[in-house]
């Protein structure tokens, strides 16, 4: 286990170097004159020169890369071209917003997905099984952003049940402590605010959580089917244990490992999906941050935003891998 952990950590080094090379390239490998591209067609000669100067674009690539990496190592993500503010400061509340959304999306995906998978396996080949799996197939085939827009149209515009934009009402702003608004409103003991925050979370969480939900449901089903046909389950059944106990106590335990892996991997995928969901629901998270940066050609923000998300993605994958080896000692690496 220790040897595996060390090896897995060592394997991260080339990946991290490669990642910084790619995000570095986002600005520095733009064909033609990067400063001109960033500023747009109408920029004057002096503006272009100024930007080149301030971003160090005149130096050789190696020097530029050296500066980029040494800044990163000091924890400096650069300065936004649009707001002139430090990206480090801007990005933290946005990360919190994204984490909150991802958490609730995953919660939705796991609760519905795992249970649908279990019932499908339990009532194998029933109507429930058929429709659940059909629904799961449709779920993975849907563009996230389309689902999000449809939700907005039906539940926000037509029915008016839920808010379509943002994290809170503009009239009652929360005083952020952790920037996780659900947590903040609990800390403030503000029930009304808690309700508002949760209400804002519903539509984006469902939109973002649908694909992982479908994948988790399919995985749980096939994993459960495999376990349910094993000898030990037959023994427990023969002992006369009730159906519910057999499934939730005995079968689920052994069916969990592949499901856990999928859950871990999907959490990472959610971070990518967040860029689309957040854009549509005006959710002030990191995805929306990157999207806005794209429209403003705010390249330092694009670079750092992508790098930060990728870093989190890599960390999640690392944890999943280690957890996998930890939970199932039969796996030898």
């Amino acid at each position: 286990m220790l040897a595996y952990t060390i090896r897995r950590l060592l394997m991260l080094i080339p990946v991290l170097i490669g990642m910084t090379i790619i995000t570095f390239s986002i600005v520095h490998l733009i064909p033609g004159n990067p400063a001109q591209v960033i500023l747009g067609e109408s920029a004057t000669e002096t503006q272009v020169q100024d930007l080149e100067e301030s971003m160090g674009l005149n130096e050789p690539y190696i020097v530029q890369f050296g500066i980029y990496v040494s800044d990163l190592l000091q924890g400096d993500l650069g300065t936004s071209l649009k707001t002139k503010a430090s990206i480090n400061k801007e990005i933290l509340p946005k990360l919190a917003a994204t984490f909150e959304l991802t958490f609730f999306a995953m919660l939705f995906a796991i609760i519905i997905g795992v249970n649908a998978g279990i019932i499908s396996a339990w009532r194998h080949n029933s109507w429930f099984d058929f429709f659940a799996m059909l629904f799961a197939l449709v779920g993975v085939s849907m563009p996230v952003f389309w689902l999000a827009l449809m939700e907005q149209w039906i539940f926000a515009q037509e029915l008016g049940w839920l808010p379509a934009h943002g994290r809170q009402d503009s009239r009652s702003q929360i005083d952020p402590i952790t920037h996780f608004y659900v947590l903040d409103s609990i800390l403030h003991m503000d029930m009304k605010q808690l309700f508002i925050s949760l209400k804002h979370l519903v539509l984006p969480s469902i939109a973002l959580g649908t694909i992982p939900m479908a994948i988790i449901a399919r995985m749980t089903r096939s994993s459960m089917l495999e376990v349910m046909s094993s000898d030990y389950i037959r023994t427990i059944r023969a002992k006369g244990s009730g159906q519910f106990l057999v499934i939730y106590k005995h079968a689920l335990k052994n069916a969990t490992i592949p499901v856990l892996t999928i859950i871990g991997l999907q959490t990472g995928v959610l971070l990518g999906g967040a860029i689309l969901t957040e854009t549509i629901f005006s959710w002030p998270g990191i995805g929306r941050y990157i999207y806005d940066a794209i429209s403003y050609r705010d390249y330092p923000v694009i670079q750092s935003g992508i790098l930060v998300v990728a870093l989190i993605f890599v960390m999640i994958n690392l944890i999943v891998d280690l957890l996998y080896a930890f939970i199932d000692p039969r796996i030898k690496y």
């Binding site: 990946v15 490669g18 990642m19 790619i22 971070l271 794209i294 998300v309």
Partner: peptide, 24 residues
């Protein structure tokens, strides 16, 4: 394999965005 690892280290849509940001 390391090149694959690096490419897979990004959520796919983000990597696509990065590449398009470079190429236009």
């Amino acid at each position: 394999s390391r090149i694959f690892d690096i490419l897979l280290a990004f959520p796919s849509i983000l990597l696509a965005i990065a590449i398009v940001a470079i190429l236009g």
